[in-house]
Nucleic acid binder design. Structure first.
Length: 570
RNA sequence: AGGGGCGUAGCCAAGUUGGUAAGGCAACGGACUUUGACUCCGUCAUGCGUAGGUUCGAGUCCUGCCGCCCCUGCCA
């Protein structure tokens, strides 16, 4: 027996983090536990990049039979709000993850963190420093030159203890003093040049109120929070790589003599970037505040709430996060992959329905005036269990404007003078006459004839036509507003370094096109907000929260692939 | 310049101890089709930033270059 302690059936490694975990498990580290955490700062809305982290952390826990905590990293009350802690919980839940009874706040540990700091002071490993932030900057040195030691670095333990206690009591003004770790002002790693552990800040905390006027820094609070929760693998993004020695220093020096549930290990991976959008909180905020979008949940936003309103499913987002992989190289994923994921999910789930976005009136001249036929229509050819429905057909219908061309190019399989098409679920019709507006020359109506022998499901003609188009019965159709969304940016994306003027110049002026006069089949009456459909030949759509009984409103989630559009372009 | 990382196709990304380049997206052909959708079939790295070295054999080991990212908040 070579590896008697190895758990059976370790997940197939498919990224470097699983390799690490598998190795840890083989070595019997952490008693075979895998415990991760998702640690958002409640200072904004979650976006698709966070979804990657959520899926990673909760996914790893699931795969290894471990646990994942939700922990709010709320150490800076000047930026954090309950509104965000609520939206974050909603989003994580909506994505399909469960933190059980393990929702924590770094602020839960403020008292313990304080006691650890006292311990560091007693051990001579931390000191109160009176340097101003400007002075501290000067003392820090540069990338190539070592820093200088603070004149307050060698205060006695007693003085430090006294000062730190008085910091807590509120005897000193904001910013006047800090508690610093005593490490190494000459370290080539700037994070190790006596980093600040606590600062004085009088701000009302969303949980602890005004109990504290000193707050711990991320680099101090995070490793301890991890250790206190028994986290085994603390996964964060690449920019924290340089902080890892400090992460380890804090744990080693605060907890070296305590019985640790685990010795958490920080592992860094590359954050998600997506083409055709922006991901930085700062820029997303600008879009909202400067009115480029309607809010954090505008369907064009890459926020979880935006994607949700747009009509994305949690399944599609999770699938996307699985497919992009986890690695350490900076990368920008093509948004086409996200779109592929939602199409694939909805292809099976979404009922088909007919909707005419830009209506063109068609009169079927040889169809009886008062006749209304109920045509049988399958709800989803990919999923027969979804059954079928009846759609009314009558003499006057509407078709899509782009499904008619007066002078069609070769291979245009739709309607044109003298040309035939099949009406989906109905008859083959032939265009006999084109009616135009006398003044503008615009085509306003078509007169067609139908062949009674070609009824869908009862076709006795045996005729084949190249094209099939969707339609809606004029007398039965419902009016609807449809919002067509496109990428936020025309090109680029993913580059957080870009200046304002650069990414703003790439904003897509057509990212939202509203069509107020669409016509949809009657079965859509009362479509519940959030319900998703495939509008035949057009794309996947989702009833918006703005939608009411009186006024239907649909968002385009994503268009169908369109090989005709490619031919046309060429 | 100091430190920390990264470099496998247009875009992601696998590649245990060196053994002869997974998979997905995109793209391009074709089949099927009452959605120009879906599905299916096929094509797509003699090549792994680059130059050397070790070896019977290198994406994997060694050395030197080159390129890109991150780090001088009392933000996270």
């Amino acid at each position: 027996m070579k590896t008697p302690d190895a758990p059976p059936n370790l997940p197939q490694p498919s990224n470097f983090i699983k390799n690490i975990i598998n190795e840890d498990l083989r070595m019997g580290k952490n008693d075979g536990r895998v415990h991760t955490r998702f640690p958002p700062e409640p200072n904004g809305y979650l976006h698709i990049g966070h979804a990657k982290s959520i899926c990673l952390n909760f996914g790893l826990a699931n795969e290894y039979g471990g646990l994942c905590n939700l922990r709010f990293d709320d150490t800076n009350p000047s930026k954090e709000e309950v509104e965000f802690v609520e939206s974050i919980q909603q989003d994580v839940k909506w994505l399909g993850f469960d933190w059980g009874d393990r929702m924590f706040y770094a602020s839960d540990y403020f008292e313990e963190l304080y006691q650890f700091a006292v311990k560091l002071i007693k051990a001579g490993k931390a000191y109160v420093c009176d340097l101003s932030s400007q002075e501290m900057k000067e003392y820090r040195g540069t990338l190539t030159e070592p820093g200088k030691e603070s004149p307050y670095r060698n205060r006695s333990v007693e003085e430090n203890l006294d000062l730190f206690e008085r910091m807590r009591k509120g005897e000193f003004p904001d910013g006047s003093r800090v508690l610093r770790a005593k490490i190494d002002m000459a370290s080539p790693n700037l994070n190790m040049r006596d980093p600040v552990l606590y600062r004085i800040m009088r701000a009302t905390h969303h949980r602890t109120g005004d109990k504290w006027c000193i707050y711990p820094m991320y680099d101090y609070a995070h490793p301890l929070s991890d250790a206190l929760e028994g986290i085994t693998h603390s996964i964060c993004t690449l920019e924290f790589e340089d902080h890892r020695p400090l992460y380890d220093w804090v744990i080693d020096n605060c907890l070296q003599d305590s019985r640790l549930k685990s010795r958490p290990q920080q592992i860094e991976f590359a954050r998600l970037n997506l083409t055709n959008t922006i991901m930085s909180k700062r820029y997303l905020r600008q879009l909202v505040e400067e009115g480029y979008v309607s809010g954090w949940d505008d369907p064009r936003m890459p926020t979880i709430s935006g994607l949700r309103r747009r009509g994305y499913t949690p399944e599609a987002i999770r699938d996307f996060c699985d497919r992009i992989g986890v690695a350490k190289s900076n990368s920008t994923v093509d948004i086409a992959l996200l779109e592929h994921c939602i199409r694939e999910d909805l292809n099976f789930k979404a009922p088909r329905v007919m909707a005419v976005l830009r209506p063109l009136k068609v009169v079927i001249t040889n169809y009886p005036e008062d006749l209304v036929e109920e045509m049988e229509a399958e709800n989803n050819p990919e999923n027969p269990e979804m059954g079928s429905r009846k759609i009314p057909f009558s003499r006057v219908i509407y078709i899509e404007q782009e499904d008619f061309m007066e002078n069609p190019p070769k291979k245009y399989f739709r309607l044109a003078p003298g040309q035939e098409v099949r009406l989906k679920h109905a008859y083959i019709i032939k265009c006999e006459e084109v009616i135009k507006d006398e003044e503008t020359g615009e085509v306003i109506e078509l007169h067609c004839t139908y062949d009674p022998a070609t009824r869908s499901g009862a076709d006795t003609s045996g005729r084949k036509v190249k094209g099939t188009i969707h339609w809606v019965s004029a007398a039965h159709a419902l009016r609807a507003e449809v919002r067509l969304y496109e990428h936020l940016l025309l090109e680029g994306g993913g580059d957080e370094e870009e200046e304002n003027s650069v990414w703003k110049a790439k904003l897509n002026p057509n990212s939202l096109v509203t069509l107020p006069n669409c016509l949809v089949e009657p079965g859509l009456a009362g479509a519940a907000p959030g319900s998703r459909y495939q509008f035949l030949r057009q794309g996947y759509f989702c009833a918006d929260p703005d939608s009411t009984e009186e006024k239907l409103v649909f968002n385009r989630i994503v268009g169908l692939r369109d090989s005709w559009a490619k031919i046309e372009k060429a």
